[in-house]
Amino acid sequence: MNRFAMMTVLFTNGLLVTAATAADKAASPLATPKEGFWTGVTAIVLFLIVFGLLSTMVWPKIVAGLDERNEKIKGEIAAAEDARHQAKVALDEYEKNLAEARAQAQQMLEETKSQQNELAAQLKAQADAELTEMREKAKADIDAAKKQALNELYSESVNLASVMAGKILQREVSVNDEQRLMDESLAELKTVNS
């Protein structure tokens, strides 16, 4: 209720209610010196006593309590902020390390793949070379064996032919004849093979 409304109520009531019979002389709200002097003295003395006692027994404890609590709260907030900062730094570092580890792993994977491919290529090349070598060797062996077999075949053939020729001619074919026949046959064989 604002002042205007209060005054309205007051005024309305004043009009409606019959004024009370003024049995007493209207008192003044302002006390005279005789009435108020010792009250004032009591007020200031009591106030000073209360101020003195509170200043020694109460306010220091309340001030200490408030200050300690303030310091505690400030300290806790600072510690919490510090911890949050440290956690953020740790998280950032962890994420950075994780990203680095991922990149490193990826790089290692790629290197491994590359090495594998390289190794596979080397192995393949080596295998190919060995295979070629083996094939060449086998071919050479086969050729040698073939040549040896042919030589043996011709040698046996020559021997056989010599024996047969000896029997036909009724005389022994000398070693020199055999050798000559063999050389001629080999020469013909080489000519045929070439």
Binding site: V50, L54, M57, V58, K61, A64, G65, E68
Partner: peptide
Amino acid sequence: ALIMLLGGLFVAKAVST
């Protein structure tokens, strides 16, 4: 004054750490 002194002592004790 009595309220302030007695109440003050009580509050001071309660507020102290």
